[in-house]
Design a protein around this nucleic acid. Structure first.
Lengths: 235, 235
DNA sequence: GCAAAAGTGTTACGAATACACCCATGA
DNA sequence: TCATGGGTGTATTCGTAACACTTTTGC
């Protein structure tokens, strides 16, 4: 006969925290909120929340992201679970961290204001509460690894973008400079971009062609086992 | 004033499950236990346990591994947290999965008997409870990725091992055949192995030299940023 | 002497890198 | 006409993959 509960064991508070990446003005940025409750009120923090009884971890992450940005169906990937006994001074809490990639143009700025949230360049992140800095470092490492063999970069850009923009994004992620010709060759050889006829003229007189990511071409490739897109891009 | 607890939120049962890999008779194996309590009594399962209030996630994983194998200071890496609402039919439980690499020769066989545990070839794993099969698949994928750029393979072998043994291990992990000459060249070019004068004659009349992994050489390399050991090895 | 596994080098191919000039446009 | 960013091709290097024979030894 099956028991009703595993009664004798500890039940623990489970949090979900989101490391939210965006890309704006040629810089990789992080979305942080100013905590409006104790402890550490007024300090900067990742957006988070507690896991509800009737939602999965993934759903909780989606909910938290939507609460802050109004966005749904966002690129969201589980990062790691942080479980040190004293990581939260109030009460023993484990936190499952997720990282998200969003297009900074499309989120709801009103919601951001309500949560006293703002964007920080990845290299000028303020002091954060608890172990959130560790989470951010770990997420950045993961994003770098991921971007080096899957085309996740597109998630951070609007639907249509130029190749120079995409290059700036990768340069920002890897904090390095890339050769224009090699970068274009590599990206185009992936054959997951669709070139449009439109040109974007905000950055130059000549204008740069807009491209669109084609998820069908991409998934076809992945299903064929071509899982490595960039063969090498700084680890 | 800081609150004493985040009272209003759900407290949830947190489990830690271990995917334990070993290598024996040229095959990658998995250590499973036969469940001796309901639900699913008699079915095969990963070794697991519940997180205690006074231990971190990593400590819980170490404890669980030690309970089953008697081993401590084992290679153990957090894999992923599984949080579907109905993954455990008894009670809502999230599980943080870890995978471990152990040398099958050194573990405590008596403890294994006590837990009705046994080793299964990775390709003949029986039906498992809950979402444990998903965990195993995910761990195997992770092991493959990890082994392709960090020398974790050594964790699965005794202190001294021959190159043909090591090759068999990698062949088993990737379920493929590797060219002897290329494999040796690649492994030796990593410069993290120390050749001993001893020969092992159990597998051939000629005998094969025994090698030892040198963690000092390895950590020196990693600290120098040479993080990719195998540049490419099937993804 | 022969079976069985251990050990060894070279060539060919493909990917990554380094590198410099022309093009289109608006001011 | 010129300043600015967009766009293009080639030569070299380096790592990877393919490939076959010799060595040692116990029986």
């Amino acid at each position: 006969m099956a028991p009703e509960r595993y009664k004798e064991y500890e039940h623990i508070l489970v949090a979900v925290d989101c490391i939210i990446f965006g890309f704006h003005k040629n810089e990789l940025k992080l979305l942080l909120i100013k905590r409006d409750f104790e402890p550490e009120k007024g300090k900067w923090s990742l957006m988070g929340g507690f896991l509800d009884d009737d939602e999965s971890l993934d759903e909780a992450a989606q909910r938290i992201l939507k609460t802050l940005t109004g966005l749904h169906d966002i690129y969201l990937d589980q990062l790691h679970s942080f479980g040190d006994v004293d990581r939260d001074p109030v009460e023993r809490t484990i936190s499952v961290a997720y990282y998200a990639l969003i297009d900074v143009e499309t989120h709801d700025k009103e919601l951001l204001k309500q949560h006293s949230a703002s964007w920080f360049p990845i290299h000028s992140v303020p002091e954060l509460i608890f172990d959130h800095e560790e989470m951010v470092l770990s997420a950045l490492k993961r994003l770098r690894r991921k971007a080096s063999h899957q085309p996740v970069g597109f998630e951070l850009l609007p639907e249509k973008f130029t190749l120079p923009e995409l290059q700036k994004l990768y340069e920002s992620i890897y904090d390095t400079n890339l050769d224009k010709r090699n970068f274009r060759r590599r990206i185009l050889s992936m054959d997951v971009l669709e070139k449009t006829e439109e040109k974007q003229k905000t950055n130059s007189r000549k204008g740069a062609f807009l491209y669109r990511f084609d998820p069908k071409k991409y998934s076809r490739k992945v299903n064929n086992g071509d899982s490595l897109i960039f063969k090498t891009l700084k680890p």
